[in-house]
Design a protein around this nucleic acid. Structure first.
Lengths: 191, 191
DNA sequence: ATTTTAAGATTACAAATATCATCTAAAGGA
DNA sequence: TCCTTTAGATGATATTTGTAATCTTAAAAT
């Protein structure tokens, strides 16, 4: 287990980011140790600092990596209606039962938004950028502030958070339905 | 520092809950140690287990205590318009700049909702109850599921979470405005 | 009044964890 | 080919943390 090629190092780096992006979303960044991440990436904890200067740095990088993945997933979705179809498809997917339990691949802002705000400067910065990027996906009008996109994003984040707290599937379903109704309303009746 | 009267014990218990409810909201329950809570309550960590069986138990109890405080604060607000005025006042207060930084007294669901879902059975149960109680405050119609209240609550939670991630006051303000516009829309145009 | 109980302080302890030092062997440059 | 560098493994360290044992002393119970 000695020195590996530059390409191998990049693959390792990627595996660390993949593992962290999943584990942080599933269990929170504070409840996940560096060793756990490295282990999930198929390595021991020792090599970690060849890739990141600190855990805080990893939190920021893994969060951005997670957002990158989600945004790419949306954009590669082919719909006949173009951007509007993409948007509607994402809203439906976001407010689905599948997204409820699939924390590890789910919305990074919903899973980590609250703790990012107290995780240091770099993670906070990534959170700020993610807010704008994720809302951009939902943009309707040419409004430069994209307030509509922000509002729909906020409604969806809150909905999935509430639905994940439900104790039975019926309550979770009801919450998701409330979110869907609300999102449709915000789309149709905006200002 | 010996045995105290029953009344004194209750006062201590209350101080622990107050401290935990604030510190958990400010820094997260995972990032806050039992010793920190006890210290903020004016005691050493030794006596903690006379009051709670485990930290997880404290997380659940402190979260409920926080929700109790918020709900009580809403209900004692006197408005000329009765319950509708109460509701509007709470929405305005929730989506205010003051609520942005006042994490320690702010909405427990926004601060802790995501981590409650992974903090064990008792905390999860409190989260589920809180969802219903907090949405109840926002109820408009006689809809037994209170989907409108749920949607408005979700929108507000997401809005404050996004606004807290903003890097400058302007972006935070824009996000709050988006939430206010959305909330008004959900109130006026529901189904 | 005497005995029992228990709140909170002090101390102890075992587990977890972020970070660092060292070692290895192979990669990349000379 | 030789030399320097470095990815990742192994192991160590210092700190933090949840929990428990023990002690003191006054409150309750008898």
């Amino acid at each position: 287990m000695p020195r590996m090629s530059e390409a191998d190092k990049q693959r390792s780096h990627r595996r660390i980011l993949d593992a962290a992006a999943r584990l942080f979303r599933e269990n929170g960044s504070e409840a996940t140790s560096v060793a756990e991440v490295m282990n999930a990436a198929g390595m021991t904890h020792g090599g970690f600092y060849r890739h990141f200067g600190s855990k805080e740095e990893l939190v920021a990088a893994a969060f951005r990596h997670a957002v990158d993945g989600v945004v790419a997933g949306i954009e590669e979705e082919e719909t006949p209606e173009g951007r509007a179809g993409e948007r509607d498809a994402y809203i439906a997917k976001y407010l689905s039962e599948a997204h409820l339990k699939d924390l590890g691949k789910g919305c990074p802002l919903a899973a980590l938004g609250a703790e990012l705000a107290r995780a240091g400067q770099a993670p906070l910065h990534e959170g700020a950028e993610a807010s704008i990027r994720m809302a951009e996906v939902l943009r309707h009008s040419a409004d430069p502030d994209n307030t509509q996109g922000l509002a729909i994003m906020a409604l969806m984040m809150g909905t999935i958070t509430l639905a994940r707290l439900a104790e039975n599937p019926e309550d979770a379903h009801r919450t998701l339905e409330a979110g869907k109704t609300g999102a449709a309303l915000l789309q149709e009746n905006w200002k």
